[in-house]
Amino acid sequence: MQEIKNAIDEVLSSKLIKAVISNNKDKNAEYRKIGINLKEKSNGEEFYQIEKFTQKQVFHENISEKELNDKFMEFMEMGYRQADIWSEGINFNIKISKKGKVFIGKKRTDNSSVAQKTKQHNKKKEYILKEGMDIQPLIDLGVFTKDGKVVNSKYDKYKQINRFIELIDHEIRKQNFEELTILDFGCGKSYLTFVLYYYFTEIKKINVNMIGLDLKEDVIKNCNEIAKRYGYKNLRFEMGDINGYRFNNKVDMVITLHACDTATDYALYNAVKWNTKMIFSVPCCQHELNAQMKPQNLSILSNYGIIQERVAALMTDSIRGNLLEAAGYRTQLLEFIDIAHSPKNILIRAVKGNISEEKKNKCIDEVEKLISEFSFNPTLYKLFREDGII
């Protein structure tokens, strides 16, 4: 190990800009490779960012220059046999033979362009809803000031709203939509509905007919007054229950945000019945399966209330995703917001597409095995079965 330490000391005698540590002798090692990059904060302070790459994920850690030597040594002791290093004026290459012999190669070069690239940190994100835009719903929500600046205390909310818009925009930009009919189930006070209307009409220039649905008469009255005040002529709000709502025209998009428990299932069911092109759903309060959960062979999942609650919620959305696939929708379960801000952080995005019969059958089989194991009777499964959708 002394040879490795000497090699690292030599490498770090000049300022490290970038390093890639790879070729672990253990093929089952947790990390395929490890990157080290010099970064710079907006105030000019430098630090190093560690990137640890598994087969499917990358984990980050920030360290100071003082910690660099120990960290580098720690990584090399984990069994990696190669390190490629870019420093100021020199490139290094460390290789360790199977017998532990250390070889170090050096090449003088100008790495100023590498330094400039790696120092870029937290590059300002380009949001769809940009500061300076005249978005009255965001002003009324307290996210924007009157001159269009983000209120500091509302920055997380600003990011959440943009994230939701981005997830919709990902599908919208795939086609040249000229008009869309959109139903928003359980719209509540509807500020996000108003923001969506702004996005479709002002940013995407799409002619939309948008309807918000809620059970509270005072909420519906207030939202219609706000829509009129904003001049959103093709946005209206109606009072109604998701379960029994009827709509006779074509529907291009269904949105459900935090429809509680099985209300989400009825919204998804209606969306599929209408042959809706796109579905965006953020479920909430998944109580149904939690109350039914009686594992046949996996009682460990019901031994602890908090575990049962969380597992049941995840199973609920897994079942919904599979059933939507079986109904002919390309379905993804995506992180809507950081789980640090809310445990209700899953968004179901389903888009009408060509799903093979083999895939549909597999999805149904997986659902039925889960139902059998835990004695579930999911509402969406019942609705789809009774109506012949699956």
Rank of each mutant, 00 (worst) to 15 (best):
E325H: 13
K56D: 06
N28R: 12
I17H: 00
D140L: 11
T262H: 04
L183P: 06
N111T: 06
L213E: 10
V367I: 11
E288D: 13
I339N: 12
E166V: 09
L129M: 02
F185N: 09
K359E: 13
L183Y: 15
T316D: 14
I319P: 10
K159E: 13
L141M: 14
A271H: 01
S22V: 01
K159Q: 14
M1D: 10
A312H: 02
D70C: 01
I355M: 05
G212H: 00
G105V: 06
M76I: 10
N297I: 12
I242N: 09
R246A: 14
A340K: 12
M76E: 12
Y230M: 10
L215M: 14
N152G: 07
N209M: 02
A327R: 07
K174A: 01
I220M: 04
P343G: 15
R330W: 05
I226P: 05
N354W: 05
L334E: 07
K117D: 12
G35C: 08
M278W: 05
D9N: 15
D169Q: 00
L257R: 11
A263S: 14
E171D: 07
L298I: 12
E10N: 05
Q116V: 09
E171P: 11
A312R: 05
Y269P: 12
T181Y: 00
T379Y: 07
S299P: 04
M76W: 05
N290K: 13
G142K: 13
L370A: 14
N62Y: 08
K39H: 07
L314G: 03
N275F: 08
S318D: 03
R310W: 12
N209Y: 04
K98Y: 08
E357S: 12
M133N: 09
V11H: 06
L192V: 03
L257Y: 13
E202I: 01
I165L: 10
S281W: 06
K174C: 07
C363R: 15
E368D: 09
V282P: 03
K125M: 07
G212F: 04
V143L: 08
I8H: 03
K123N: 15
L196I: 02
S153D: 14
K382T: 15
D26R: 12
G100K: 11
T331I: 02
D317P: 15
E373R: 12
S112R: 11
G186D: 06
K41C: 05
I211K: 00
E178Y: 02
R246V: 04
Q286A: 13
E178D: 06
L213M: 04
D252Y: 04
R32Q: 08
F237W: 02
I337L: 10
K157L: 04
L323N: 09
V254L: 00
S190Y: 02
Y245Q: 00
V151L: 12
L257E: 00
L383Q: 01
V150M: 11
E74F: 15
K130Q: 13
I94S: 14
K382V: 07
C363W: 03
F280E: 00
P343V: 04
V143Y: 02
R108N: 08
I211A: 00
Y232C: 12
C284T: 09
R108I: 09
A313E: 10
H121A: 01
K71G: 00
Q57L: 13
R330M: 06
M315N: 09
